[in-house]
Design a protein around this nucleic acid. Sequence first.
DNA 1: CGCCCCTATTGAGTAATAGTCAATAAGGGG
DNA 2: CCCCTTATTGACTATTACTCAATAGGGGCG
Lengths: 206, 206
Amino acid sequence: MAPPQRRLSRDDRRAQLLASGVAFLVDQPLDALSIEVLADREGVSRALVFHYFGSRQGLHTAVVTTARDALIEASTPRADLPPLERLDDTIGRIVGFVRAHGGTFTSLVRGIASGDPVVRTLVDEARDENARRIVEVLVELGHADTELLRVAARAWVAFAEDILIALALGTERSDAEIVAFLADTARAITGSVEAAQATHDGARRG
Amino acid sequence: MAPPQRRLSRDDRRAQLLASGVAFLVDQPLDALSIEVLADREGVSRALVFHYFGSRQGLHTAVVTTARDALIEASTPRADLPPLERLDDTIGRIVGFVRAHGGTFTSLVRGIASGDPVVRTLVDEARDENARRIVEVLVELGHADTELLRVAARAWVAFAEDILIALALGTERSDAEIVAFLADTARAITGSVEAAQATHDGARRG
DNA sequence: CGCCCCTATTGAGTAATAGTCAATAAGGGG
DNA sequence: CCCCTTATTGACTATTACTCAATAGGGGCG
């Protein structure tokens, strides 16, 4: 690929290897990213990859963290918007990210949950972050910040991930339609949470 | 473990190895199930494991298929019940399965999505089967069998899996509460599907 | 401009594990 | 009780993660 330019600065080489690893995820599962594959892709020795990432797990961790942070950053809520519009805006930018980087997104939310618990945790953190954003919006709208609400928000993110892969990558539906549908399901599930919470509290009081 | 009884019948030995592999999933991820680990657990040679499953992937495929089928069978809908009750009954038995075999369930729906696309497909089939059951109930109740409904049903199953792991394994909530909540969210999301479908059709007609 | 030292880079090695195969022996049928 | 089918194994190879002492590229100082 690159001409045999050798001895890059530490930061440049690390960035090069990381970028190559993330790009690899576009059409290959994390599991297929071996040390040798990455070394060959970039025309360096296997030992160099070990030098920068320490281990196969270290490489996977670094690559997944990079891809995950790109998603989280691309969908950071605009704090200046009122809650409901902020939710729509955030979902809209996630849809955009999925359309732009579908392979990476799919590898992240589906293909990546390898046996490695460290990698699992990294991906879960992205889901938790998105769930936290949802809960924040709902609390601003006056909903009680309960355990069930948080659990439901997390599960809704899993729901949304599945919808995104199916609709944003597999169909011709417009971004606006997908955003409207997802936001509506978030509201609908919040309603179910409120109802269950009422029943639960009633049972505990009665 | 077992006394050195040798030369079992083909079916018995295969069943023994499979059962051990499924049991392994209770507290370990699939990725950690190497040929050697299973051979040692059962006191046989590695070559014997290869003889029965052909490869590491073959072993994983067989183990996951077995665990998956146990879940699918434990939650087979009772055809004699009317739709809504059948849905509650099915969800209830899934909750029971999760409570009884939480480790296996978790390994199945979370820990297993290893890079291996064959294993991925196996687990997806369980999700698809459950989604198919949901759609069947909804169609019986008069809903149109649209693409969006099917996509949403599949995503709802992912939602339900997350809820089950959080509530059935992590909290003291009663089975009845969990079933009622999940069934309610299924109805709520169906409502969102209907609304989106109306908008979508309206846009196409207009 | 040239040398030199710091450190990025590597080749050659070990360890663990997937996968192969011909040889062995257990145990049921005749 | 023997014999033949076949379950079982030990010994081998291949691949891949991982280590480390040795090499060499190039920026900085004279």
